Amino acid sequence: MLLAILLPFLSFIVRGKVLTGILCLILQITVIGWVPAAIWAALSLNNERADKRNRDLIKAVKESQR
Results as ranks from 00 to 15, higher is better:
32 I>R: 01
51 D>W: 10
36 P>C: 00
66 R>M: 15
26 I>V: 07
21 G>V: 06
61 V>W: 07
32 I>Y: 09
20 T>Q: 14
53 R>I: 12
20 T>R: 15
29 I>M: 08
61 V>A: 02
19 L>M: 10
63 E>V: 11
6 L>R: 14
24 C>D: 03
9 F>D: 01
34 W>M: 05
46 N>Q: 11
19 L>T: 14
9 F>M: 03
11 S>D: 14
13 I>F: 09
47 N>Q: 10
37 A>P: 03
56 D>R: 00
11 S>T: 02
2 L>D: 12
36 P>W: 00
2 L>A: 15
5 I>C: 09
6 L>T: 13
20 T>H: 14
20 T>E: 14
30 T>D: 02
55 R>K: 08
22 I>A: 06
32 I>T: 01
27 L>D: 06
58 I>D: 14
24 C>Y: 09
3 L>E: 09
29 I>L: 08
30 T>L: 04
43 L>C: 08
57 L>P: 06
44 S>H: 06
57 L>K: 15
55 R>T: 07
38 A>T: 00
24 C>R: 00
28 Q>P: 06
11 S>K: 04
19 L>N: 15
30 T>P: 00
40 W>D: 03
61 V>E: 11
20 T>M: 15
46 N>P: 15
25 L>W: 00
19 L>E: 07
31 V>C: 13
61 V>C: 04
5 I>A: 11
48 E>R: 13
49 R>F: 08
45 L>I: 13
38 A>P: 00
10 L>E: 09
62 K>P: 09
52 K>G: 08
37 A>H: 01
26 I>F: 14
24 C>H: 03
8 P>D: 06
31 V>P: 11
6 L>N: 14
20 T>F: 13
16 G>V: 02
4 A>M: 02
54 N>L: 10
43 L>H: 10
17 K>R: 15
1 M>F: 13
62 K>C: 08
14 V>E: 11
54 N>G: 07
14 V>N: 11
46 N>V: 15
47 N>D: 12
43 L>R: 07
4 A>I: 02
15 R>F: 12
35 V>E: 03
46 N>E: 14
34 W>I: 08
62 K>W: 07
10 L>V: 12
8 P>Y: 08
5 I>H: 01
35 V>H: 01
33 G>V: 01
14 V>K: 10
36 P>H: 02
34 W>D: 01
49 R>I: 07
60 A>L: 05
44 S>D: 02
52 K>I: 15
20 T>V: 14
65 Q>S: 06
65 Q>L: 15
1 M>C: 10
29 I>T: 07
12 F>C: 11
27 L>E: 05
45 L>N: 14
50 A>V: 11
11 S>E: 03
66 R>G: 04
30 T>G: 02
47 N>K: 07
26 I>R: 11
39 I>W: 01
34 W>R: 06
29 I>H: 10
43 L>Q: 11
12 F>A: 03
65 Q>M: 05
54 N>M: 12
15 R>H: 14
13 I>G: 05
61 V>Q: 12
53 R>A: 08
55 R>N: 05
32 I>P: 05
42 A>H: 13
17 K>Q: 08
54 N>I: 12
49 R>V: 09
16 G>D: 01
28 Q>T: 12
15 R>C: 04
53 R>Q: 06
23 L>C: 08
7 L>T: 09
32 I>S: 03
9 F>H: 11
